[in-house]
Measured scan of single mutants.
Amino acid sequence: DENEERIRAFALYKGIDPEKARELWERGEINKDDEEKAWREYK
C-alpha cells in the first residue's frame, strides 16, 4: 500500500533501516517536508 511505499522511500532517502523508519512513522516523528521530498524523489 502507499504508506508502505512512503515508509520505504523515506528510509532510502534518510539512509536508515525501513523498520526504524516504520517506528518513526508510527510515533509521528517523521518530518512531513522530508517525507514529501523523499516521496517525490522516489517516484
Rank of each mutant, 00 (worst) to 15 (best):
D1F: 11
D1A: 12
D1G: 12
D1Q: 11
D1N: 13
D1K: 11
D1I: 11
D1T: 12
D1P: 11
E2D: 14
E2W: 14
E2K: 09
E2R: 10
E2N: 12
E2H: 11
E2Q: 12
E2A: 12
E2L: 13
E2P: 12
N3R: 15
N3Y: 15
N3H: 14
N3D: 13
N3I: 15
N3S: 14
N3A: 14
N3P: 09
N3F: 15
E4R: 05
E4N: 08
E4S: 09
E4D: 12
E4W: 13
E4F: 08
E4Q: 08
E4H: 06
E4L: 09
E4V: 07
E5Q: 10
E5G: 05
E5T: 05
E5F: 05
E5R: 06
E5K: 06
E5M: 08
E5I: 07
E5A: 10
E5P: 02
E5D: 11
E5W: 07
R6L: 11
R6T: 04
R6K: 10
R6H: 08
R6S: 03
R6D: 02
R6N: 04
R6Y: 07
R6I: 08
R6M: 11
R6G: 02
R6F: 15
I7H: 01
I7Q: 01
I7L: 09
I7P: 00
I7G: 00
I7A: 01
I7K: 01
I7M: 05
I7R: 00
I7E: 00
R8H: 12
R8Y: 15
R8T: 11
R8P: 00
R8Q: 12
R8L: 15
R8G: 04
R8D: 04
R8F: 14
R8S: 05
R8W: 15
A9L: 08
A9R: 07
A9D: 03
A9E: 03
A9Y: 08
A9V: 08
A9H: 03
A9P: 00
F10R: 00
F10A: 02
F10Y: 15
F10K: 00
F10V: 12
F10L: 14
F10H: 02
F10N: 02
F10G: 00
A11L: 01
A11Y: 02
A11V: 01
A11I: 02
A11P: 00
A11E: 01
A11N: 00
A11G: 03
A11Q: 01
A11M: 02
A11T: 01
L12T: 09
L12V: 10
L12Y: 11
L12F: 10
L12M: 13
L12P: 00
L12G: 03
L12E: 09
Y13W: 14
Y13F: 12
Y13I: 05
Y13V: 03
Y13D: 03
Y13A: 05
Y13E: 04
Y13P: 00
K14Y: 15
K14M: 15
K14N: 10
K14C: 15
K14T: 13
K14F: 15
K14P: 00
K14D: 01
G15Y: 01
G15D: 07
G15E: 04
G15S: 06
G15I: 01
G15W: 00
G15T: 01
G15K: 09
I16P: 00
I16T: 01
I16E: 00
I16G: 00
I16W: 05
I16S: 00
I16F: 04
I16R: 00
I16L: 09
D17R: 07
D17L: 11
D17Q: 08
D17H: 10
D17A: 13
D17W: 03
D17P: 14
D17M: 07
D17C: 14
D17V: 06
P18M: 15
P18V: 15
P18S: 09
P18N: 11
P18E: 15
P18C: 14
P18Q: 13
P18D: 10
P18R: 09
P18Y: 15
P18I: 15
P18G: 06
E19M: 11
E19H: 09
E19T: 09
E19K: 10
E19W: 08
E19Y: 07
E19N: 08
E19F: 07
E19Q: 12
E19D: 13
E19S: 11
K20N: 08
K20L: 14
K20H: 13
K20M: 13
K20Y: 13
K20V: 14
K20S: 11
K20C: 15
A21Y: 02
A21G: 01
A21D: 00
A21P: 00
A21K: 00
A21C: 07
A21M: 04
A21R: 00
A21I: 05
R22Y: 06
R22P: 00
R22T: 03
R22A: 06
R22E: 01
E23Q: 10
E23R: 06
E23F: 06
E23W: 08
E23H: 06
E23K: 06
E23Y: 06
E23S: 06
L24C: 09
L24D: 01
L24Q: 07
L24K: 03
L24T: 01
L24S: 03
L24W: 04
L24I: 07
L24E: 03
L24P: 00
L24A: 07
W25Y: 14
W25E: 00
W25R: 02
W25V: 04
W25F: 13
W25N: 01
E26F: 11
E26I: 13
E26D: 11
E26M: 13
E26S: 09
E26N: 11
E26K: 10
E26A: 13
E26T: 09
E26P: 00
R27P: 00
R27I: 07
R27C: 09
R27K: 13
R27H: 09
R27G: 06
R27A: 13
R27M: 10
R27W: 05
G28A: 04
G28C: 09
G28K: 04
G28F: 02
G28H: 06
G28R: 04
G28W: 02
G28T: 02
G28I: 02
G28Q: 04
G28L: 03
G28Y: 03
E29P: 02
E29F: 07
E29G: 07
E29Y: 08
E29W: 07
E29C: 14
E29I: 05
E29V: 07
E29M: 12
E29L: 14
I30L: 07
I30S: 02
I30R: 02
I30A: 02
I30D: 01
I30V: 12
I30Q: 02
I30Y: 11
I30E: 01
I30W: 10
N31F: 06
N31R: 07
N31V: 06
N31Y: 05
N31C: 09
N31D: 14
N31Q: 09
K32W: 15
K32A: 13
K32N: 07
K32R: 11
K32G: 09
K32P: 14
K32Q: 11
D33F: 09
D33S: 10
D33A: 11
D33K: 07
D33M: 08
D33N: 08
D33W: 08
D33T: 09
D34I: 06
D34W: 05
D34S: 03
D34N: 03
D34R: 01
D34Y: 03
D34L: 05
D34F: 04
E35M: 15
E35D: 08
E35G: 06
E35S: 09
E35R: 06
E35L: 15
E35P: 01
E35Y: 15
E36Q: 07
E36Y: 06
E36G: 03
E36I: 08
E36A: 08
E36M: 07
E36R: 05
E36P: 01
E36S: 05
E36F: 07
K37R: 13
K37L: 11
K37V: 10
K37Q: 14
K37P: 03
K37H: 10
K37T: 11
K37A: 15
K37S: 10
A38V: 04
A38Q: 03
A38H: 03
A38Y: 06
A38K: 03
A38R: 02
A38T: 02
W39M: 07
W39G: 02
W39D: 02
W39K: 03
W39I: 04
W39R: 03
W39Q: 04
W39V: 03
W39Y: 07
W39E: 04
W39A: 03
W39P: 01
R40C: 14
R40E: 13
R40Q: 14
R40L: 13
R40Y: 14
R40N: 13
R40F: 13
R40G: 07
R40I: 12
R40M: 14
R40H: 12
R40T: 12
E41M: 12
E41F: 12
E41R: 07
E41N: 10
E41S: 09
E41P: 03
E41K: 12
E41H: 11
E41I: 11
E41L: 12
E41Q: 13
E41D: 11
Y42F: 09
Y42N: 04
Y42H: 06
Y42L: 05
Y42D: 03
Y42A: 04
Y42R: 02
Y42P: 02
Y42I: 05
Y42Q: 04
K43H: 12
K43I: 15
K43D: 07
K43Y: 12
K43S: 11
K43N: 12
